[in-house]
Computed example of a mutant assay.
Amino acid sequence: MKVLKEANADDIEIIPMHEEEGISAFSFGLKDVIGSFGPEINEIATDSTWKTNAAGYELYAVVAEAGGRALPLAFTFVTTTGSARPGAKDRTLQDVLHWIKVKCLNIKFMLSDKDQLEINAFATVFETAKHQLCYWHAIRYLEQHLAEDCPPAAYDGRKT
């Protein structure tokens, strides 16, 4: 947070986060990117890394596509303890998505892997937008399951 607070306020914006016991999070968005492309953005994607540093923070990234370009929009670092209430990370990600929604009014699609937290947060904030599985994750899923050396599940068309 110290580095973010010292950064040029024209470049980044610290995203306001609700505070909650058992969770530590900080987020920032790239103001110039959103300011320049916000109205054009109709598709965002989210992904996360798992415990990227010694402090155990996960990193969530929100990126967009506009004008044939990949655009980083916002980043969130989050960690929880055993005292965090259920859904704490979901609510944290919702804070970030609400910030994006205010600045990007035309979002119609969201791509992600099968991370239920990301899917739930997106559905809560962008009620009418459609969620899709990322193409890379879909192909990977198919390759993994087609490579399994096991018979297919039994199927009986008479059962509903």
Rank of each mutant, 00 (worst) to 15 (best):
E65P: 01
L71E: 02
T79H: 10
T52F: 10
G29M: 03
K101W: 11
S27L: 08
V63D: 05
T46P: 03
L93M: 13
I34H: 01
E43H: 11
R69H: 14
W99C: 04
P39S: 13
E43C: 14
L73R: 00
D95Y: 03
T49P: 05
L71F: 06
A55Y: 15
F28M: 03
I44G: 01
E43F: 07
A66C: 10
F37R: 08
L30E: 01
L59S: 06
F28E: 00
K101L: 11
F77K: 06
A70V: 15
S27R: 00
E65S: 09
L71S: 04
D95P: 04
Y60P: 01
R85H: 12
A88V: 09
A66E: 06
V96I: 04
N53M: 14
A84L: 06
T76Q: 13
I34D: 00
Y57C: 07
R91Y: 06
K101M: 09
G35E: 08
T52I: 15
G38I: 05
K51M: 14
T81G: 11
G35N: 12
F75L: 14
G35P: 08
G68F: 04
A45T: 07
Y60I: 10
F28T: 01
G87L: 02
L73T: 02
W99H: 03
N42D: 14
E65M: 08
D32N: 09
N42E: 08
E65V: 15
I44K: 00
V96S: 02
L30P: 02
T92N: 07
D47F: 13
T81M: 09
G68C: 05
D90Y: 02
N42H: 10
G82F: 10
S36Y: 09
D90I: 05
F37K: 08
E43D: 11
R85A: 15
T79D: 05
W50G: 02
V33M: 04
V102P: 01
I41M: 03
A66M: 08
A45C: 09
L30T: 03
G35I: 05
W50I: 10
E43Y: 08
G82P: 12
Y60W: 12
L71W: 05
K101F: 12
T46D: 07
L71Y: 02
T52C: 13
V63W: 02
E43Q: 12
